[in-house]
Amino acid sequence: MSAQIPGSRSGAASSSKPLLELRGVTAAYGGIQVLHGVDLEVPEGAVLALLGPNGAGKTTTISVACGLMEPTAGKVYMAGADVTGVGAEELARRGVVTVPEGKGIFPNLTVKENLLMATYAGVDMDHVEAVAYEQFPRLGERRTQVAGTLSGGEQQMLAMARGLAVNPAVLLLDELSMGLAPLVVEELYGIVARIARTGTSILVVEQFARTVLGVADLAAVMVNGRVRAVGRPSEIENELSAAYFGV
């Protein structure tokens, strides 16, 4: 990444051009439309938190952004280039790292073997291992353990280690906190903040999340397949409680 924006993240949010941009994206499973025209911009080096209740279309948005799903209409841009319809594996090789909801690891592979899979993105194994074990010493102790037997927090760390080691342009995180203890969640978001400081643009999807707002530069509230509001975390508090508690 060319632009390093250390520290002043709020500044990054307003001034930079978008690195990941969804424009008028609609998506459907078979006959049912899930996204009804989503416009979303993740500015370069910024963290955008996408929040909303169950079934709002957050996971589908991620799926479109990472290339697993093709939008029925609309465009996806990465760093200004149109990547609509480019496959997930191709995007991954171009520096998009996605940690999907609750299953960011291969449960029957060992920790080390899981990390080896990250090398498809074009980094060498030594680097991946060095970064992963330095950031998460616990993974280093368990490098030969089968990943499915790690605790939930360690599994998410393993998934995140990939995000750290690849040094991606864009990081897409889906429900990072699901089923994890608050302390673990805070630790994970500390790492998200650290990755953000290296200039990576991050899109985080969360359902219940005040923790993520502490890390995010921008937050968007999504309801029924549409983005209802975007703004600084402080600006959208009202929208947020309306979306959850139906006030």
């Binding site: 990472c66 697993l68 496959g87 997930a88 594996e89 991954a92 090789r93 790292v97 996605t98 999907p100 299953k103 960011g104 690891i105 291969f106 449960p107 029957n108 592979l109 073997e113 080896l116 899979m117 990250a118 498809y120 993105a121 074009g122 990939r162």
Partner: peptide
């Protein structure tokens, strides 16, 4: 290892950049 990874989770392998 990718052969075993496919059995675990196809789409995750894609997200890693594997085919």
């Amino acid at each position: 290892i990718a052969m075993r990874a496919v059995v675990d989770d196809r789409s995750l392998l894609k997200l890693n950049g594997g085919r």
